[in-house]
Amino acid sequence: MNIFRLAGDMTHLASVLVLLLKIHTIKSCAGISLKTQELYAIVFATRYLDIFTDFISLYNTIMKLIFLGSSFSIVWYIRQHKIVRRSYDKDQDTFRYVFIVLPCIFLALIINEKFTFKEVMWTFSLYLEAVAILPQLVLLQRTRNIDNLTGQYVFLLGAYRALYILNWIYRYFTEPHYIHWIPWIAGIVQTLLYGDFFYYYFHSWKNNKKLQLPA
């Protein structure tokens, strides 16, 4: 465990807690894309298949349970909660994520480290995580202005993967044969996707004005 990875995990944890807090306290999910939350639930479900078979550390298991629990409860809140569901804007959140799930499955079947069920599912979850934010970014573009909790959520989510890239660089130089092309490429693609959001987020923060994304 290195500082970049710990910071990345904490940032990731903060992003889901900010979202849960927002939905739980103001009982609203305005501006949140249910599609992205469903994709993240799939990402964690397909990545943590080994949660009960391979014990790595208490930290690892606890964090996996938190990520699984939070992502599924966020989906539950937006879909089922009698008050929260009313603020879900399904007319705007129309991203057809079958167009990203199928290519990720196909890609995971042909580009993976080992053609086993667990390995292909893990690879699929990496590819899917890289593009899972798309419905959320599309929704933000459509609704144009975003409240700062949603902005913080997307920012933290992007920052976590950028920190993971630093962690992979650190591990590449400090551990022998630590070569994992697949998460590296998926992670870079993911961070680049947040690139333009970071740009507008930084400028709105610098000029201390409400974050407005261009149409």
């Binding site: 080994d50 391979d54 790595i56 550390s57 690892n60 964090m63 630590y178 998460p183």
Partner: peptide, 10 residues
């Protein structure tokens, strides 16, 4: 054939 490294990251 080398085994893929264990997945110790989240």
């Amino acid at each position: 054939e080398i085994e893929p490294l264990p997945k110790d990251e989240l």
